[in-house]
């Protein structure tokens, strides 16, 4: 079996994996990172979205062997100690989640969206999150949360750069 080295939420793992093992199953079943859930088997729902070397990726559509040498950040690695990422806070503040199953993927996709467009319009947010499905919220509060998160992240980066 192939050996891979992968860093997940700051911890380095050396694992022997079947070539067909999905990254999301490596995360959930082997490494115990169960914060990242699985919502479908066709790459449509985005619940399993993680950051793979800084870009969002649906971890159900990536083989563990493809993540060899990569840095993976999951929802469990976003906060710094007890301090939540601004997008986590924004989702809480705007009531952008109900059952919370899509939330990890939605937050990851939102952060990735902002990396390309730090100040997105409502329309850009809606288009940008098209690959992440939510069945509870009707998306209005998710859109609001992403705008709030964007604002908070921009303010934070201004503080850092000044």
């Amino acid at each position: 079996m192939p050996r891979i080295t992968v860093t997940v939420d700051g911890i380095r793992y050396d694992e022997e994996v079947e070539p067909r093992l999905l990254l999301v199953h490596l995360l959930r079943d082997r490494l115990g990172r169960t914060g990242t859930p699985i919502g479908c088997d066709t790459g449509n729902c985005g619940a399993c979205t993680v950051m793979l070397d800084g870009k969002s990726a649906k971890s159900c559509s990536v083989l563990a062997v493809q993540a060899d040498g990569c840095d993976v950040v999951t929802i469990e690695g976003l906060a710094t100690g007890d301090r939540w990422h601004p997008m986590q806070t924004a989702f809480h503040q705007e009531h952008a989640l109900q059952c919370g199953y899509c939330t990890p993927g939605m937050i990851m996709a939102a952060i990735d969206l902002l990396a390309e467009d730090p100040d997105p319009s409502e329309e850009a947010i809606r288009e940008g999150l098209e690959g992440n499905l939510c069945r509870c919220t009707g998306y209005c509060n998710i859109v609001r949360a992403v705008r709030r998160g964007a604002q908070a992240m921009n303010e934070a980066s201004e503080v850092t750069t000044s």
């Binding site: 859930p37 929802i75 469990e76 939330t103």
Partner: peptide, 8 residues
């Protein structure tokens, strides 16, 4: 739910 400390 926002931190992934869920119990599915």
């Amino acid at each position: 739910l926002v931190t992934g400390r869920t119990r599915w």
